[in-house]
Design a protein around this nucleic acid. Structure first.
Lengths: 254, 254
DNA sequence: CCTGATAGG
DNA sequence: CCTACCAGG
């Protein structure tokens, strides 16, 4: 099963440029999209692309956040959000269940300038923990794909020193990654397969040719529950796929 | 003296496209610009173009309205507005005095959907009358150039029937044109020289190729006080000058 | 530097 | 449709 996550930074802008992800990467069977920035009723035919089951989950605030789940085969069920209206009103999480696999697509909150929203973000992370635990209690193995808006360690961004204390690299959010990947035992497969390789990023700022110079951050992940680890055949980031300030991350499960 | 008026619909957009009016029409010695939509401090070098005396008068509300007066020779003095803060806070009028000539550049208010702002507009027109009367009491002859946002008569727009009761063709504003050009005796030189010629417009909506099909309105004028009439050598509209949804109107005075 | 929302035209 | 603004990233 080929699953891919992409923060599209506005699906309408991507569509206008003819860079829709399913056209660009035809082998993918499940797409988790973040920052769609549109309701289904704003995008016409794009809401139900030919050959896909599509589910759109949007923020209340127009043009803000929003996620989508597209799959070639229909999921057994789809869960919107984390079960907490404080987070679910921002359209950040969609879970598709396929057999014993739960595919969770998520757009974690940005902690913002001066860490203004770090409390909200850590609350979201805690709610995500509970959500994942609930899925596992249902006997499901989980893969959590999306834009975590967190660079875990110094190796995960090009300028760790300069970004000490900046949104996405705050002690509090990094500590949650430690907890999630350490204490809770979820697996950052990509880093496990490239333990010491720098320069592997999924996001670059739009200014100053950062992407061309590969001054980026790895903030998009596909992490799996421990019991899914043995099914992971492949995991990749796709820096050559353009159309957003993020690039896709794909995982192949057997 | 070659004087030209142009509603630029955002001077920054015009500059970005390299369509600055003084580059396009080098013979012009005085430019009255409307809808500049920028303060002098937002436009860098453009605020004081080489070889020009420039005066910018902006609305309080950012990106809204705004007029400019540029001239090859320095005016004896410049007057900002009409002397009424209700209108002057919207950056709509600049007057440059050159010898015994007062060049008044004006951006008349739009009367808006449903005539929502017709009272404001007619108040502006009344204040403009007083302003012009004041200039004449000072012994000045006046030319009032700009976007009046009024089509005077049916001949002045392509679709008079369909626009009966629409902003720019409301009875109240047309009546003010009648008063200005009839009772008060100011002269619409362009119409006097083309009394029965339809299809002479200065503004076209951006939708549906209206300009290519010449579905437009004549809402930009250069009108003169009766005592200036004998000095008018030429008056033209310039539908070939692109860069805005309006085209320039020029007048040549001896 | 991008996205999308919004006001104003 | 097109110019600006603005929030958010």
């Amino acid at each position: 099963m080929h699953i891919c996550s992409w923060n599209v930074n506005g699906i309408r802008a991507v569509a206008k440029r003819n860079q829709l992800p399913w056209d660009q990467m035809p082998a993918i069977e499940v797409w988790c999209l973040q920052e769609t920035k549109a309701r289904a009723d704003q995008i016409g035919d794009l809401a139900e692309p030919d050959g896909w089951f599509a589910h759109w989950f949007s923020a209340e605030k127009p043009g803000y956040s929003g996620v989508a789940l597209l799959s070639r085969t229909a999921p057994n069920r789809v869960v919107e959000g984390l079960g907490d209206p404080e987070y679910d009103c921002e359209g950040r999480v969609l879970t598709g269940v396929y057999g014993d696999l739960a595919v969770v697509g998520a757009y974690f909150p940005n902690s913002q300038e001066g860490g203004k929203r770090i409390d909200y973000k850590l609350g979201f992370c805690a709610a995500m923990e509970r959500h994942l635990a609930g899925l596992r209690r249902q006997g499901l193995r989980t893969v959590l794909l999306g834009d975590y808006n967190i660079a875990h360690r110094a190796i995960d961004l090009a300028r760790p020193k300069e970004n000490e204390g900046n949104a996405g690299f705050l002690p509090g959010e990094r500590a949650w990654m430690e907890r999630y990947l350490g204490t809770l035992g979820y697996r950052d497969v990509f880093r496990e397969r490239h333990p010491d390789e720098p320069g592997l990023y999924t996001w670059w700022t739009n200014w100053g040719g950062a992407r061309a110079r590969n001054i980026g951050w790895r903030i998009d992940y596909a992490t799996v529950s421990p019991d899914l680890m043995d099914r992971v055949a492949d995991i990749r980031i796709h820096p050559d796929i353009m159309g957003s300030d993020h690039c896709p991350v794909s995982i192949t499960l057997e």
